[in-house]
Write a protein that binds this DNA or RNA. Sequence first.
RNA 1: GUGGCUAUGGUGUAGCGGUAGCACGCGAGCUUGUGGAGCUCUCUGUCAGGGUUCAACUCCCUGUAGCCACC
Length: 396
Amino acid sequence: MNFKIENKIKNSLGRVGVFSTAHGDILTPSFVAVGTKATVKSLSPEQVKEAGSQVILANTYHLYLEPGEKIIKEAGGLHNFMNWLGPTMTDSGGFQAFSLGVAYGNKLSKFIGAESPEQKEIDEAYDENKNKKAKITEDGVEFKSIIDGSAHFFTPEKSIQIQNDIGADIIFAFDECTSPHAPKEYLNEAMERTHRWAERCLFEHKKNSPSQSVFGIVQGGRYEDLRKESAKVIGGMDFQGFGVGGSFVKEDMATAVKWVSEILPEEKPRHLLGVGEPIDLILGVENGCDTFDCVAPTRMARNGTLYTKHGKINIMNAKYKNIFGPISEGCECYTCKNFTTAYVSHLFRSKEMLASTLASIHNLYFLNDLMLQIRKSILNNNFFEFKQKFLETYKP
RNA sequence: GUGGCUAUGGUGUAGCGGUAGCACGCGAGCUUGUGGAGCUCUCUGUCAGGGUUCAACUCCCUGUAGCCACC
């Protein structure tokens, strides 16, 4: 693996590069499609590729539960198993410490708005005992299977072993993604634990499968001092790249990413975990991130929310019933080139499977195309003009 | 033609002489290291006419419509 920076945004942290893996090059900045269970829901690998995706990210926790990493290893690794011949990543399962833990059933995301409750209320509302399906200890995380409720224990070593078996090109260190409501004291504790886990992950990985790249994950939540400390500690370790994880105050995300990027080694790639709204992608690139993964485009697609150059639309709104033009004017995706808004709207209303497919293709294409345009603008040294122009038309 | 039964949002259905409830649908919103889902909110109704009563969706009469049985 190798990462080459081709051009940078002047007076900013953003850059264009090429990240080479055993399964091909990733032209960065790039959006990574999420295929949790070794499939991008509703899409064939050919469709994912045609939508412009270069990389797919699968999930260690989900694949460990089913079909089990041994089956994937036996199949010849993730690429062979799912017939995706391009680059792949696996998330470590660390996010599930959050999503199956304090977030489970609480409608909690990794973002909170700046207008959320006062800090005191946040701290008081935070209850780590509320965990339902994940319990965190120094040694690792105990998960309850979302399939059958059985108990499973992930240590950093175990996460790496599973990821080695699954065989993605880029794997992530096992971390703890904390709640955006967690008090600072807890964030600090979790961050330091994540740092210890990072060391253990590196050690385990070097024993097993050095052909994969491992990325260490920066935590620290919404606090500048914690983020910077985490970037310093994780950035100092022998990872091939870095992930920026954890939760954010939505309005401060770009700033938080900047704190981290300024400290992480410049020559190594940076991945912003779980961020994928168009505006967040632009801000993420501007502040030094090279790759991004997010469930948003595909999840929203399945529920009828589609990107257009003017912002998001809900294709099920009555006004789209008889629009016989494309979903987004000028869009070159398979869906827009071949089907009308009215037809896709009909598919959603009648709950046809093709609805998810066509919508997912469109949303993935939209973000992939956005990344291509960002890339081009950085190469042409006019990133900020592009950004301004995009923000003028795109209304969230 | 005769007798009986029924009539409540768009659809299917509760209910009671005193605030008409539910489901689905309709209309809209939320969705950020997956959640093929879920949640929130909004709009719609007592077949028509008359009577009894302080008060009728509810009881009575007439009409209309549908269903069933008989001729």
